[in-house]
Design a protein around this nucleic acid. Structure first.
Length: 192
DNA sequence: TTTCCGATCCCCT
DNA sequence: GGGGATCGGAAAA
């Protein structure tokens, strides 16, 4: 359970730092829309547009705790991995074994893993996540997360942005939750 | 357990 | 043309 905020054209870590481009237009759109982009040539990352129209901002969904369809997610991942490398039967079997043992709360514990677990790709950009009939939508959690259990830390993988953007504590995660991506914030380690 | 590296494609100066 | 809002396997230790 982890998100990161990217706010405005001034934010040197944000995809909006170059102004409006073909890729990021949806960030300038209505709040509640999905923005999905590709990183490192292979991972689709889900963001939710957060500010009123005209103000480019989004929250990256970095990690999620899946509650349903976990076996499907694991099977899907096993298929993708064995497709990627030309593995022989034995290697494929060990890969499948390893993946079948991934704990439920680690199946979507990273930005790329969230996209992969739910089959989200860039074509989902623009989807209205506030529409109750969308295949992917935001719903209130129950029970709600106690704000006292949320830790803030610097964002991950944005060294290029430079200070102060590398340091602003806009990565929010649930303290001690196992579905948090690596590197885990120091104060969010289990056994806190 | 930690560290290193390759994968793989698109985006933008 | 350079490098990335990452992941997983292999090696080191």
């Amino acid at each position: 359970m982890e998100v990161e905020a990217y706010i405005g054209e001034d934010d040197r870590a944000s995809h909006a730092r170059f102004g409006r481009t073909e890729r990021n237009v949806v960030m300038y759109g209505r709040p509640g829309l999905a923005y999905v982009y590709l990183v490192y040539g292979m991972h689709d990352c889900l963001n939710v547009v957060t500010e009123p129209e005209g103000r480019p901002a989004a929250v990256l969904i970095r990690a999620v705790e899946p509650v349903e369809g976990v076996d499907l997610m694991r099977a899907d991942r096993a298929r993708r991995i064995s497709r990627r490398r030309a593995a022989d039967g034995a290697a494929r079997a060990t890969a499948a074994m390893r993946i079948s043992r991934i704990p439920r709360d680690r199946v979507a514990s990273g930005p790329g893993l969230v996209g992969a677990a739910y089959g989200i790709d860039r074509s989902w950009t623009g989807l209205d996540l506030c529409d109750p009939v969308s295949v992917l939508r935001l719903e209130p959690g129950s029970p709600a997360v106690d704000p006292r259990v949320i830790v803030a830390s610097p964002r991950v993988g944005i060294g290029y942005a430079g200070p102060p953007w590398t340091d602003v504590p806009w990565r929010l995660s649930i303290m001690g939750h196992r579905s948090v991506s690596n590197p885990r914030p120091a104060s969010a380690r289990p056994g806190f």
